[in-house]
Amino acid sequence: MTVTRSPAPPARPRESPPPAIEALDLEALGIQAQELRHRVRCAGREAPRRGGGALLLPAEELIERLLDERLLEP
């Protein structure tokens, strides 16, 4: 398979200021906040990783991370 990188798109000149950011709430998307409540107790919670999620970590840090994710029994 040949993979080529597309050229950077040219900057698009704007005749008017950029549009405003549209803020939506969960209900507008048909999602009830309570549907997400249990998600804070699930594995795979989103949290910043030291080193940007590098795969190679000191063993202690890896164990700490797995415990935090509840992927390892204390």
């Binding site: 969960l26 549907e35 997400l36 699930c42 795979g44 919670r45 989103e46 949290a47």
Partner: peptide, 22 residues
């Protein structure tokens, strides 16, 4: 051409699946 965002306290600390749902 358009930017949308949801900012909600119930998204704090949720897992990737919840984020993906939104």
């Amino acid at each position: 051409g358009r930017a949308l965002r949801v900012r909600d306290a119930s998204l704090e600390g949720i897992d990737y699946h919840g984020t993906a749902q939104v």
